[in-house]
């Protein structure tokens, strides 16, 4: 689904990521692991075409470039870190991406959203609450459920557990595994949370610009 080959990122002449390659298949949960500032978010930004890079990124066999970027972004569900949308209510937050032409066909009913929320321990009463009244953890889980329901083949998630306690981290991990197994999604998560790292099919460890290693924590085959 997602192939990263020889990816290098430079900011103002300074190397952030150097010669990184990995593959994320459908049905797989892959973690980008590394300390804060090591370039995890930058890698996600490259995959969405937000950050300049050298090397190549392909999705479903199509090379990411200026002419394919719109098409490839339509394959992606993206959850930024601790996203604070300016929407007034939770309902507006939930349905925001479904106002886009690319996602209108997949707009879920309220019941479908509530079913999804049960997996993430979210109460249906949150739907009519003000967006400013919910906690950071609730917000993160709501945004994950929205991404999960978009019906995309690739999900990119940036630090999904930064505002969660350990019980909810396990719930989120279970949710990722459910999306990968049942909806055949490829999921790439940037995280330094040990529980997430342990639960992934593969971990891409980012340890400075000259030393990138990949580790398979589970059997990793075709």
């Amino acid at each position: 689904m997602l192939q990263i080959s020889n990816l290098s990122i430079n900011y103002d002449g300074k190397s952030i990521v150097n010669d990184l390659s990995f593959l994320v298949r459908r049905g797989e949960l892959v973690c980008l692991q590394g300390k804060s500032g090591c370039g995890k978010t930058s890698i996600l930004n490259c995959i969405m075409g937000f950050t300049p890079y050298t090397g190549s990124i392909t999705m479903d066999g199509k090379l990411l470039n200026e002419s394919t970027v719109d098409e490839l972004r339509r394959l992606v569900a993206y959850v930024p870190q601790e996203l604070a949308l300016p929407q007034q209510t939770v309902r507006e937050m939930v349905y925001l991406p479904y106002q886009l032409k690319a996602n209108r066909h997949s707009q879920p009913s309220e019941d479908t959203v509530f079913e999804e929320w049960k997996r993430l321990n979210l109460d249906a009463s949150l739907m009519d609450m003000s967006a400013s009244a919910i906690s950071g953890g609730q917000r993160q889980r709501i945004m994950l459920s929205v991404a999960g329901l978009l019906g995309k083949s690739l999900m990119l998630v940036d630090e999904p557990t930064s505002a969660l306690d350990s019980d909810n981290v396990q719930l989120v991990l279970d949710y990722f595994r459910f999306l990968a197994a049942s909806r055949n999604m490829a999921i790439l998560v940037a995280s330094h949370h040990q529980e997430i790292i342990r639960g992934c099919d593969m971990v891409v460890r980012i340890e400075g610009t000259m030393n990138h290693k990949t580790r398979e924590s589970h059997e990793y085959g075709d």
């Binding site: 930004n45 969405m48 937000f50 719109d70 972004r73 339509r74 992606v76 569900a77 993206y78 930024p80 996203l83 949308l85 925001l96 991406p97 886009l100 032409k101 690319a102 996602n103 991404a147 978009l150 995309k152 990119l156």
Partner: peptide, 9 residues
């Protein structure tokens, strides 16, 4: 970026 990353033109 959230909007672009989720398929917005």
């Amino acid at each position: 970026r959230y909007l672009l990353g989720n398929g917005a033109t």
